[in-house]
Design a binder for these strands. Structure first.
Length: 742
DNA sequence: GAGCCACCCGTTTTT
DNA sequence: CGGGTGGCTC
């Protein structure tokens, strides 16, 4: 093919990246390590395909993991001159799936106005079904049933198949719920998250002609983060790529962290078997981190069995060692992090946006937030309670969902008595029964209140009034703007006034949140070409935490390790490195799950450009009350001692420490407080030694203060022999005891 | 039907 | 600690 001017698209790429960008047609697997420039390769590849005339912009489908990544990709392509890509098929699996479903809804027995249910809505459906089936919550926790169903959908297992896979009575009950659940969603003209992937596959399997259209359309398919695709996504890609076979996937098996959500490593590990003629490119040069950081990350990840051997390298200097910091408590851990941020801030001319603090669970953010607030440091937090999952927001959205899709009885139930209008559970049941008898929807049934038995005249009136209220907005939907509709509807419900009248700080916050939602709607209406109620609701449903994260704001970022995937920061803190927390105790027994935790550590560590701090606390409060002593995470022990340096917040803790003789912080002046100290016998660094030593003074929750006389066993089975103040010597099983180190 | 209180449970991680 | 639930009273 005669090549127009594409040299600028290849400039600055290393040879392997370049080969990947300009390779010929057919399946392609790019094994791209962390920080190896995979996003760049994807973008340049798209630009290259267009520039060389191999495909037009709308013949390319590019799938990313988050909307944010999709947005960045579009932006960078636009900067390369591809403005027409703005409307292209670049997005997440879920958003692209939704787009296909909206277009083809009719072939699946859906209307194009279908609503997208989040887990909360799904859970409500499952609860209703369990009620219907007379299965009490103690016998079958609704969350578990929902989980089984979701897993099945992710693994591309339909209700019939699921029945044959039942292994225990819980699964048996889930097997009963599953078909009914599918039915219920259909009846409500709704789909759940998993359906956004699953239903397109069903569609394509049942309608070869439709499949053919999309196969023809998408000459080139590019997929980012391929290691985190599940089985259903795998089928979707296989179907779409069957014709042109131009499937270009980029991934890194070491960064697969969504197994729990159905991600299947087989997809990437077996790519070569599925596509024997595929071209494989390996990007192992890292452009992000210092050598020490890479070595540290590598020394941990190699402990995994199920991985492709590979090693990242960099041309960057070794850089500083990785710092491990031990703190006495979670509060102190947070303080130390703040202190390090201050030091860095002062000595290295950094800005707040250079820092990220990562943790395993959202709950850990609290202590860190407190410390940041105490010190007046601006921070932005990703995740936790999402804006669109707040109760008051979901309530307002439910109003809009019912207007957008009157078949949605789940949303209708949510608002039928909110704000309180006296239509309680018993009344809803009566209406529901009438609806079932006459095979109409819940909303329609409300129109016929006169025919429903055992209702007081007042209640009849209330129900009818509510019906008319909803009906009015349904008829207004296409006549007034989304903004007007939402504002007017919220106004008429009186929700805002109620909060105002209540006057509590909590109520006022909720009021503000609803105002913010209304702002978001008008903003949406201003920015989108053809704003629609469905469009807004879909955008809201598919938004992710990280999508709303503004990397330009001048603040320290806080997020979970999962959220940090794909990002990079000059200075990274990974906190809570304790056995049971990271790795999380639930995942410590199974090899597979432990390996996923290790990959999560690897992902976190490789976010760092220049500095990596790993912190842990000797005690941590759980559920507010209980203090339990944790041991340092095994990942710390797995780190190559040559590239780490240990700090403690209580230097006296180690009696044998000598003045630092290592060279690592020779030039450090003035010495930070507290004083950093090289671990003297680092080779022998082990959990037991960090936690307990002979002669150490401790306090037991029951027996009071005492002195450690001996240590027996290790890990889970570690016991300490303690001489207590009452003169008695007791052997304590560390695992079960609450022990404070004095 | 609604409001109040006492208990219970939990928590990964997210599209 | 904080949210959800179930049982109680008005």
């Amino acid at each position: 093919m005669d090549q127009p001017n594409v040299n600028h698209l290849l400039e600055g790429l290393n040879p392997e990246q370049r080969r990947a960008v300009e390779c010929g047609d057919g399946p392609v697997l790019v094994l791209a390590g962390a920080g190896s420039g995979k996003t760049r390769v994807l973008i340049q590849r798209i630009a290259y395909l267009i520039a060389t005339g191999r495909a037009s912009a709308d013949e390319i489908m590019a799938v990313t993991f988050t909307n944010k990544a999709a947005g960045e990709m579009k932006e960078r392509l636009e900067r390369l001159g591809h403005t027409h890509l703005h409307h292209g098929w670049i997005g997440t699996f879920h958003s692209l799936g939704a787009r296909i479903l909206r277009r083809e809804a009719v072939h699946l027995g859906l209307e194009s106005t279908f609503n997208i249910y989040d887990q909360d809505d799904s859970l409500n459906c499952v609860k209703l079904i369990l009620d219907e089936l007379d299965i009490p919550g103690e016998r079958m926790p609704p969350r578990l049933a929902a989980h089984y169903i979701s897993q099945a959908k992710n693994a591309f297992v339909d209700p019939q198949q699921f029945k044959t896979m039942v292994e225990n009575d819980k699964m048996q009950m889930a097997a009963e719920v599953y078909p009914r659940y599918v039915q219920m969603l259909r009846a409500n003209n709704a789909v759940d998250f998993d359906d956004l992937l699953l239903l397109p596959v069903v569609l394509f399997r049942n309608h070869p002609n439709i499949l053919e259209y999309y196969q023809e359309k998408f000459r080139y398919i590019l997929v980012d983060e391929y290691q985190d695709t599940n089985r259903t996504q795998y089928h979707l890609l296989q179907l779409l790529a069957q014709k042109h076979r131009n499937l270009f996937v980029v991934g890194d098996d070491d960064q697969s962290i969504y197994r729990w959500r159905g991600a299947d490593l087989r997809n990437i590990l077996d790519f070569g078997r599925d596509y024997p003629d595929c071209q494989v490119f390996r990007l192992e040069q890292n452009y992000r981190s210092t050598q020490n950081i890479l070595d540290a990350a590598h020394s941990v990840i190699v402990k995994n069995q199920g991985r492709h051997e590979k090693r990242l390298w960099t041309q960057k200097e070794a850089g500083e060692k990785v710092h491990i910091i031990e703190a006495a408590s979670e509060r102190e851990e947070a303080e130390v992090i703040v202190q390090k941020i201050n030091e860095e801030f002062l000595s290295n001319k950094r800005t707040l946006r250079d820092f990220v603090i990562l943790y395993r669970t959202n709950a850990q953010s609290r202590a860190i937030e407190d410390a940041l607030r105490r010190h007046g440091i601006a921070y932005i937090i990703v995740g936790g309670i999402r804006f669109y999952e707040r109760k008051e927001i979901k309530d307002v959205l439910a109003y809009l969902k019912v207007v957008a899709n009157p078949l949605d009885s789940i949303s209708l139930r949510r608002i039928i008595n909110y704000p309180l209008r006296g239509i309680g559970e018993a009344t809803v049941r009566k209406i529901q029964n009438y609806a079932l008898q006459h095979r109409i929807t819940l909303l329609e049934a409300m129109k016929h209140t006169d025919e429903i038995e055992n209702l007081s005249p007042r209640l009849r009136h209330t129900i009818k009034a509510f019906y008319q209220f909803i009906a009015k907005y349904i008829s207004l939907k296409d006549k007034i703007s989304v903004t007007e509709l939402a504002n007017s509807m919220v106004e008429e419900t009186g929700i805002l006034q109620n909060f105002k009248a209540e006057g509590t700080p909590d109520a006022l916050t909720r009021m503000e949140n609803i105002r913010e939602l209304l702002n978001a709607i008008s903003e949406y209406a201003r920015n989108v070409e053809n704003p629609s109620l469905e469009g807004f609701l879909e955008q809201v449903s598919l938004i992710t935490d990280i999508d709303t994260w503004d990397d330009r704001s001048n603040a320290v970022s806080l997020m979970t390790l999962h959220s940090a995937k794909g990002l990079e920061f000059p200075v990274v803190f990974i906190s809570g490195l304790e056995e049971g927390l990271f790795p999380l105790s639930r995942n410590m027994d199974s090899q597979d799950e432990l390996e996923e935790e290790r990959r999560l550590f690897y992902v976190g560590a490789t976010r760092a450009r220049e500095k990596l701090y790993l912190t842990y606390a000797r005690t941590r409060s759980r559920f507010g009350e209980f203090q339990r002593n944790g041991m340092p995470s095994r990942f710390l022990n797995e780190l190559d001692p040559a590239v780490v340096e240990l700090f403690q917040t209580r230097p006296a803790y180690y009696s044998r420490s000598r003045p630092s003789s290592g060279s690592a912080h020779r030039h450090r002046a003035p010495r930070p407080e507290p004083e950093p100290q090289a671990m003297p016998d680092y080779e022998n660094f082990s959990q037991e030694q960090v936690l307990f030593r002979k002669g150490m003074r401790i306090r037991h929750s029951h027996f009071g203060a005492g002195r450690v006389e001996a240590i027996e066993g290790h890990g889970e089975n570690m016991k300490i022999v303690v001489a207590f103040g009452d003169g008695r010597i007791r052997k304590i099983m560390v695992k079960y005891a609450t022990i404070e180190i004095l």
